[in-house]
Design a protein around this nucleic acid. Sequence first.
RNA 1: UCCCAAAUAGCUCAACGGCAGAGCAAUCGGCUGUUAACCGAUAGGUUGCAGGUUCGAAUCCUGCUUUGGGAGCCA
Length: 429
Amino acid sequence: MLTTIANLHNHIEEEVKIGVWMYNKRSSGKIQFLQLRDGSGTIQGVLLKNQVDSSIWDAAKNLTQESSLYVWGKVRKDDRAPSGFELDVINLEVIHIAEEYPIANKEHGVDFLLDHRHLWIRSERQRAILKIRAEIIRSIQSYLDSEGFNLVDPPVLTPSSCEGTTNLFHTKYFDEDAYLTQSGQLYMEAAAMALGRVYSFGPTFRAEKSKTRRHLIEFWMIEPEMAFVDHQGNLEVQEKLVSHVVQSVLTNCKLELKVLGRDISKLEKIQAPFPRITYDEAVERLQKAGVDFTWGDDFGAPHETLLAEQFERPLFITEYPTGIKAFYMKPNPERPEVVLCADMIAPEGYGEIIGGSQRIDDPVLLEKRFQEHDLPTKDYAWYMDLRKYGTVPHSGFGLGLERTVAWICGLEHVRETIPFPRMLNRMYP
RNA sequence: UCCCAAAUAGCUCAACGGCAGAGCAAUCGGCUGUUAACCGAUAGGUUGCAGGUUCGAAUCCUGCUUUGGGAGCCA
């Protein structure tokens, strides 16, 4: 029966069969070392010429990088092996002799690797990142589910923009114009009025000509929305969620973090509560640091980094000027020139990973905002209805998955955090 | 959209106005404990494209294409 490499520690001194790819080989005249992987882990297979059948010896000799095969062998503890185990190969059955493999066991350029992304993900480092991405998704969902949230799926095809500013991907819905979603938030507000606490998890699309290490054209967001929760309650959910996710990765992905060379001590400090500063205070801090910045402007990436560097935990910047934020955000009743919103800025220069706010629940004010922003009221009639039929205070936020993965993994660029990145000028593979 | 940089063997790079080279990968051979194994040999080229300067251009100039980094915008 087939077992996996991750499972071999349960089979010491036993004979096992595994299905594997050979990612590297080292050999001498009378001994061969096969570097084997099966997705669950890696192990070295050892063949001694005087101990295996010559046909098996020759078959092993002919294996090329990334050839696939079944291997029968005896699991042996060995302190010389990085994983602590080796496999003494008894028999093997070749499934496929791979053609010359483009990705060598050495350094490559980014362009080349992205062109071969379908193969690049086989590498130890990329596998570690995708494992951590999966763990992050798993821990987000299990946390929200355990806190009484329900997963609700908003549509991907939408009739118009949720937040007029960003560029949308245009497509056709038969004879009508349609756009790929850039946020499911407005639909989640409707869902929160039905189910109380909800969250969405899905892809979003921005046709922005952004070319930085923090941007993708297609990326995934988690968007929780909560009825009867105010601005402060919103922040508490966010910090608890993020600390839970970081601690889950620390517990369940030790090997992967080690492969990535991540500084664990920085992640261990990520415990709720997170520091909060207002926009006003952030501006003061920037000015004190010698930055020329006027109240009312939005922060750029360098500003966020400068502020985040003053803290070891993610930083909430709250209550931005109304003019630079989205139309649906609720003004502070005591100070209507700012809104009850917060951005969560990750440490170490990873930038904004969450944007959230309390939403406008007053139908009159929302109507006014539609006029001010020149939004088509017809397209948003359903959204106005939410305020007409039992409106309640409610809040929500959007968590950018790829930026979160990049931060937790300690990566230079978000392109490695998603299996097949969609970037400006790159849609292959 | 703007600013900066790069493009040479399958890959990573060198050659910077005067014979286009090395390492890795590939192929062949050697080696009984290798960890990106090592050693020897073989093969591998329209120097991104188009023009220009020059006795001579991978090298200098102009345009284009592609890619990377950054800005803006955002998650």
